[in-house]
Simulated assay, not measured.
Amino acid sequence: MASSAYELAQRLGDEAVRTSVLDAASRLLAVEGPAALALRRIAAEVGCSTTVLYRMFAGKAGLVEALYVEAFERFRRRLAAVPKRDDPLAYLTDLGRAYRANALDERNYYRLMFGEPVPGFRPSDDALVQAAATFAILEDALAGCAAAGLLVDGDPRHFAASLWAAIHGVVSLELAGHLPDDADEIFDATLIAMGIGLFRK
């Protein structure tokens, strides 16, 4: 029998309930598609009443927006947790590997970030600002490389976008099952290839 919103929040805490709801929704979306994002279905998966979902997200549109924001926030936290290093190039490489690790560990959320899993969904301006905060970490890392004299001439922001695109491409191929078993080596080769083009000899 489903718990009431009050009972569930008392037992787990609002943040834990919110995480459980978002994880269940992201999983259903990945496995069954957008039709599975019925609030009653998600509430049943988590073991609560739909009151919980309406209280936290104000409906389906709010839930989808929360999924998008959560995806980028988890991604941002993963990148922000990478320790800074004296060698800016080594730090940038660590960020690239953290990008891939997050994509592999959070596959359902990763697809939410860069695809259109829910037809018609458009993130709000606030959600787009939060998403951009993730990209700022990579921009700052490239700016550090530029300050150290490691980059070829050009705008570090453009280099950051190019590096993001390259990493996103190889990770997306891996998630889709299009890379052979030695995906680790292919990913490292991508980082090396980008380094050849972006960094001074």
Results as ranks from 00 to 15, higher is better:
163 L>D: 12
175 L>G: 01
175 L>E: 02
168 H>M: 05
172 S>M: 10
160 A>S: 08
166 A>I: 09
161 A>Y: 03
173 L>N: 04
167 I>K: 05
160 A>P: 01
149 G>N: 11
154 G>M: 09
160 A>K: 05
177 G>Y: 05
173 L>R: 13
151 L>R: 03
156 P>E: 05
160 A>I: 13
173 L>M: 14
177 G>V: 04
174 E>W: 03
163 L>Y: 13
170 V>K: 01
154 G>Y: 09
173 L>P: 01
154 G>V: 10
171 V>K: 00
162 S>A: 15
165 A>C: 03
151 L>Y: 01
171 V>Q: 06
176 A>E: 08
171 V>M: 00
149 G>Y: 07
177 G>P: 01
175 L>K: 01
152 V>G: 12
171 V>G: 00
159 F>Q: 05
164 W>P: 06
155 D>T: 12
170 V>E: 05
176 A>I: 02
174 E>G: 08
160 A>W: 04
155 D>Y: 13
165 A>G: 08
172 S>Q: 11
177 G>N: 04
154 G>N: 08
169 G>P: 00
168 H>K: 09
169 G>M: 03
153 D>H: 11
173 L>S: 11
177 G>A: 05
161 A>C: 08
172 S>D: 09
169 G>C: 05
156 P>L: 04
150 L>N: 03
165 A>V: 07
162 S>M: 11
165 A>H: 02
164 W>I: 05
166 A>W: 04
176 A>S: 06
164 W>V: 08
163 L>I: 11
158 H>S: 15
176 A>F: 06
162 S>H: 09
